[in-house]
Amino acid sequence: MQAQLDISNLSKNFGGLQALKGIDLSFQKGELVGLIGPNGSGKTTLLNIIGGYYDASGGAVTLEGRKIDGLSPSTLARLGIGRSFQMTKVFKRLTVLENMLVGALADWGLTRKAAEDKARGVLDKLKLTRLADSPASSLSGGQAKLLEFGRVMMLDPKIVLLDEPFGGVHPELKRFMYEKITEWNDAGATIILISHDMGSIFGLCRRVVTLSYGDIIADGDPETVRNDPAVLEAYLGDHHAA
């Protein structure tokens, strides 16, 4: 079966630094994959390339058989790739509700009324209703994460890229996010989840990919990866061959 998202020999250099060293990865439709690795191992860089924010230095990314290198982030979003950011990118001077509407209104087929109804429904689940008309600048870090998660929910993406979505989020709402991620996944969406929160990764994902210094050092089911000496070494070792 052809992979939904295929990454082949992908590399990314920042000046002299090789953030990704020619990695191969493919994702089938409906997978729920955890992406882990120490700080600076290249996780966010990989997401940025898949999402069109960075150009790759080499290699290719293919979405449903179509090369997507060079497509803009907005085009990719419209092709069904939704993402959240490690450093949240909420629109601070817009209200929480307006933040939610931007993505929905990018679809010209949707009326403002319909978009608003949908947004209010999502905000309710995220316990942000009370803040709907406040500027997003008034949100806490955890609430900003939730808002970004909500903005992704508004898009109904078929591929969801989540970069540290749980940082600072209240446990109860984290459970809601778990449920939503599972629900998306059950409905056929492919999910790539980056998190340093191992409880979330191993609780949710059926496959875990580990990056270290721009290379994939492990890729398999959670149990195997958890016990992989290379993974333990990457996380615990204080030295690493450059």
Binding site: G51, S74, K89, V90, R93, N99, D107
Partner: peptide, 19 residues
């Protein structure tokens, strides 16, 4: 609304499918 979202954060706006 798109204008103001772009003013606040271009990448964030693009990630939501706005051209």
């Amino acid at each position: 609304l798109f204008f103001q979202a772009i003013r606040e954060d271009e990448d964030g706006t693009a990630s939501l499918g706005v051209n």
